[in-house]
Design a protein around this nucleic acid. Structure first.
Length: 337
DNA sequence: ACGCTGATTTACCCACCCGC
DNA sequence: GCGGGTGGGTAAATCAGCGT
């Protein structure tokens, strides 16, 4: 049932039916009720292609995602998407998840924007130098970045204070007497990894502790890589007494490596994980974590920023930074003082 | 005759197909 | 190769009917 058929049924013009359903004030209440009742009775749904044609917008926001095997199991990912969905639905907007090949992600961005498939895009996992953001900025396509990046002009973003997060972790370990503190990072091309490393280094330097290059291990965003880098750290003649891991995926591998070396976090070595590890995945251990609180609410915020951007609000005002929270567990209680 | 309300008409959106 | 029609919907302009 399309608008024309519904109008024919009601003995009204298609325009009047459209205006009645869209809440225009120049349609009488009696007519409006008649129209909405008939629309409901016949299960009328506006044809989204036709709407796009007439309005020049899709009422769709997209998120292009080079999905990794574990992403769809990640409860944090679910919570963020859930929060966004709720917020968008209230505004009558659908969230489209567009999976992309890891190798030609930018090509997907070009296809989606040039084809006007969506009104705006959420960009996740930002890079220090992010060609996707630069591309969107250059063609003035509305977007909100989940994470910051190095850009010449202001752009809308939501992020956690990564820098402060690792600084807090290092300060805590320093207070326990640690000096040989290692950092296992995700690839440093990723902006969050770079910021977390900078926070780590800044806290060490502020305390006058030299940062040995061998204690800075980079490139782990999977359990496999986390395990490999932890093994590398343990092989060193002078082992670290504490380890900070900048993401929870690598942390799974770090825990595996510790088990293999028959070391226990909290007894033999101190461990703090950015993002934390669920107790059921940590063999019942309570891992000290740098938390990014309330992912669901983060999703709501991301969507709100997108809606504000679509309303044409000044991008410089659409920047939100949330603090992280250090949640003490028992995995970092090795005290050297 | 006039203004107001509520409805209809007209024009247009964009990509594609069809016929001349 | 070009112009015109098509699809479903909406915005703006226009019209009809009513009461005063």
């Amino acid at each position: 049932m399309n608008l024309r058929e519904l109008a024919l049924l009601l003995n009204l013009s298609p325009t009047t039916v459209s205006r009645a359903l869209n809440g225009f004030s120049d349609v009488s209440e009696k007519t409006r009720q008649r129209v909405t009742a008939a629309a409901e009775r016949h299960g009328y749904q506006p044809n989204s292609t036709a709407r796009k044609l007439a309005l020049g917008r899709t009422d769709c926001v997209g998120m292009i995602y080079p999905l990794q095997p574990n992403d769809l199991n990640d409860p944090v990912f679910h919570a963020i998407v859930g929060g966004m969905t709720d917020q968008f639905n209230d505004a009558g907007i659908d969230l489209m998840l567009i999976s992309a090949d890891n190798h030609n992600e930018l090509q997907t961005y070009q296809r989606i924007t040039a084809g006007h498939r969506v009104d705006g895009l959420i960009v996740a996992r930002t890079c220090v130098f992010d060609e996707r953001l630069r591309y969107l900025q250059s063609c003035q396509f509305p977007f909100v970045a989940h994470g910051r990046s190095q850009m010449d002009t202001p752009y809308p973003w939501f992020d956690y204070d990564n820098d402060a997060g690792t600084r807090a972790a290092v300060e805590r370990l320093l207070a326990l007497g640690h000096k040989r503190i290692a950092l296992i990072s995700a690839p440093l091309a990723l902006n969050f990894a770079m910021q977390r490393k900078q926070g780590f280094v800044a806290a060490m330097q502020a305390a006058g502790v030299t940062v040995e290059a061998s204690l800075l291990q980079e490139g782990a965003l999977t359990a496999q890589m986390g395990e490999a880098l932890m093994h590398r750290l343990l092989k060193q003649s002078l082992r670290p007494t504490a380890v900070v891991v900048d993401n929870n995926l690598a942390a799974m591998g770090v825990l595996a490596a510790l088990r293999q070396a028959e070391l226990r976090a909290g007894t033999d070595i101190s461990l703090i994980v950015f993002g934390g590890v669920a107790p059921e995945l940590a063999m019942g251990q309570n891992i000290t974590a740098i938390r990014q609180p309330d992912p669901r609410e983060a999703g709501v915020t991301l969507a709100s920023l997108m809606l504000a951007r679509l309303r044409g609000e000044d991008t410089a005002s659409l920047q939100v930074l949330w603090p992280t929270l250090l949640q003490p567990g028992t995995s970092d209680q090795v005290c050297l003082v």
